[in-house]
Computed example of a mutant assay.
Amino acid sequence: MIFDDDNFIDGLRNRNEDALEYTIDRFTPIVTSVVGKVLECYGKETKEECISDVFVSVWWNIERFKGEGTVFKNWICAVARFKAIDYYRRFANKENVISINTTVSPDVLDEIITNEDRKEVVELLNILVPEDRKIFSMRFFLGMKVKEIALQLNLSEAIVSNRIYKGKERIKRCIEIEARKGQELEEVDVSEG
């Protein structure tokens, strides 16, 4: 069967390798661009490995895509971006300081998430240990189910669920602490004025 923009998604869902080949041929330039922006300070080999992982992720998670071919480009860009962020974190310095270059084309970024929200999300995820950050990315950015995450990371579903629960609680406490600090600063400003 010959694949084109109208039928490649159905081919991917039916696990047709020719559809995957079409997807790779069609979307490699944009995936390369997105990955290259995030991993610009890393070598060609790292970028190529990440790009390959993007297409593997698309292959195994195509059922998560709920849309037509016209929005597939945005979806694969989001997958590429988050996969590249995972790579960046993996190779970042030991302090896990994250400095993400967000100069991807505006039409893609506007549909994924705003700059302010993205910075806030990355800062919140930084309070989690690396494995928990990966679980959160898989669950909330890629939309994977707990069972799928458990299989991919070779963990039990109970462990994955527990880490998600504890991670949410930790993030919630962090937000509450920041909110209290903000209120205290406002009270100080008002009393001094």
Rank of each mutant, 00 (worst) to 15 (best):
M1K: 08
I2W: 02
I2T: 04
D5H: 13
G11E: 04
N16D: 13
E17V: 11
E17W: 08
E17Q: 15
E17L: 10
D18I: 07
A19I: 03
L20Q: 03
Y22I: 00
I24V: 09
F27A: 02
T28C: 12
I30P: 06
V31Y: 06
T32Q: 09
T32P: 00
S33R: 07
S33C: 00
V35F: 04
V35Y: 05
K37N: 07
K44F: 09
E45L: 04
K47M: 11
E48C: 00
E49L: 12
E49M: 11
D53N: 12
D53I: 02
V54W: 03
F55T: 04
V56A: 15
S57M: 12
S57P: 05
W60H: 11
N61Q: 00
I62Y: 00
E63T: 08
K66I: 08
E68F: 13
G69S: 01
T70Q: 06
V71F: 06
K73S: 08
K73N: 10
W75V: 09
V79K: 02
A84G: 05
I85M: 10
A92Y: 14
E95L: 14
E95M: 14
E95A: 13
S99G: 02
P106H: 09
V108G: 02
L109A: 10
I113M: 15
T114M: 11
N115R: 15
E116K: 11
E116L: 11
K119L: 12
V121Q: 11
E123V: 04
N126L: 07
N126W: 14
I127Q: 05
I127T: 01
I127S: 02
L128G: 01
M138V: 00
F141I: 06
G143E: 08
G143H: 05
A150D: 05
L151I: 13
L151H: 14
L151C: 13
L153I: 07
L155C: 10
S156D: 06
V160E: 10
S161V: 06
N162G: 11
Y165H: 15
K166L: 12
K166I: 14
G167P: 08
E169I: 12
R170V: 09
K172L: 12
C174G: 04
I175F: 08
I175R: 09
I175L: 00
E178Y: 14
A179H: 13
R180T: 12
R180S: 11
R180I: 12
G182P: 03
Q183C: 15
Q183P: 10
E184C: 01
E186H: 05
E187K: 01
E187Q: 05
V188Q: 11
V190S: 01
S191Q: 12
G193N: 15
G193A: 14
G193Q: 15
G193D: 12
